[in-house]
Design a protein around this nucleic acid. Sequence first.
DNA 1: GTAGACCTAATTGTATACAATCAATAGGGC
DNA 2: GCCCTATTGATTGTATACAATTAGGTCTAC
Lengths: 236, 236
Amino acid sequence: MIRNDRIVEEEPSNLSSSIVATLKEQIIHWHYPPEHRLTEIELCKTFNVSRSPVREALRVLATDGFVKKLPNRGYVVRQHNIVEIEELYEVRLALELYAVECLAKRGPLNKNDGEDLVKLKRTWTGLLNGSSKKAEELARLDTQFHETLAQAAGNKMLLRHLRTINERLMLFRMIDFDKTDRAKSTCHQHLKILKCITAQDTPGARATMQQNIEEGRNNVHTAIKDALARAYSMKT
Amino acid sequence: MIRNDRIVEEEPSNLSSSIVATLKEQIIHWHYPPEHRLTEIELCKTFNVSRSPVREALRVLATDGFVKKLPNRGYVVRQHNIVEIEELYEVRLALELYAVECLAKRGPLNKNDGEDLVKLKRTWTGLLNGSSKKAEELARLDTQFHETLAQAAGNKMLLRHLRTINERLMLFRMIDFDKTDRAKSTCHQHLKILKCITAQDTPGARATMQQNIEEGRNNVHTAIKDALARAYSMKT
DNA sequence: GTAGACCTAATTGTATACAATCAATAGGGC
DNA sequence: GCCCTATTGATTGTATACAATTAGGTCTAC
């Protein structure tokens, strides 16, 4: 989970919240197949708690869209299909283009935000020259990069919406970074974005950001289509 | 509540859901002062139900950001301040600019979406020539206009995010349309947006949309500042 | 008079009990 | 053999009971 130094939502320590966190994590990591039914009693057994916290957790997950509620019939896990993934990438694009535009237009940043961007520059320069990392680590750092920019843009609502989207895209970012040379091109794009921001080159920042996100979207798209094609060819 | 013909989330009919709807409505309409404490037992009395559905409702409202949860201390209503309102308007701007750009770029629409836009044109032409309406009705129609565009853009995730934002902005739209001549300028802007979309004039559509949303944002901003100033001058 | 500890009331957190609802299955009529 | 209906079992929806925690007040020591 990405924890930022300044905007943190304190999570209360009760059973319900930890069940939400655990189930969310499991659903994001495809622990359950799509449309898998979640019955309250079974969850009670696995978590060793009563139905009250489980019910509250499921309701929260339903409002967040991780599970679907069937009236009087409980819940099923709601796994995103390829169309929804692409939609999420597009919403991400809309929000991040706006964020990076704000940053580039604003000019000199305050101390905190400036330091954050310097850190990002250091991190991604290091990744460019250093040894190769695992896809999971790269996905984490990538999310951190984009959320730090949104944070520096200074709009908490934007950051909040971006985070709910990124939660859903985490696994697909990993698929993205499985692709050869993706890490390298991302490094270049990220560093260019940072350079454009400090140079107040708004169109350049926007264009590079768009390139960066759409490259990811395309990688994920082809990866999923390939996987589906393989699955289909195995059946026939 | 805006109900659309095609994308509707079926709301289960249980106590918890209706409590969520009622409380949300009340909070949006400033039925409670900011930071007003909501205790479970009091809500039980007002709704004549037990604590179970109330608890679940409060938890949902907390994840949606309408109330804030204090660990072991219950909930307080979380009213947006002027900064957050502006942030919401900016996120709206980012999403709607993207939506209108998609629409303008796409070219000829399918039957359903085309008919929707024709209906919008009829409605707002009528408003331009017809008698003046109440701010509440205008706010409703305005929300409908923008959500119909997002719907026609074809991205359900974008529409979902936009709706959560619009829920919070409903009351401020009413403030916006209290301003003299705002209805008229909105009519012109909306009709121009529709014209730009059919003419596939992407920059025109974006620019007009930006003008439309920022005019609203400015109206709300000055209205709130004036209200606060008046409140301050009364105290001194 | 003030600081600290302790106690109490209020409120939330959790568990369980009961009611309502729905899907599935078995049985009877055609 | 097929369709309709009634019963039943499983599951959710709601209510209540008990445990844990916290805020606020009171009492005592200094």
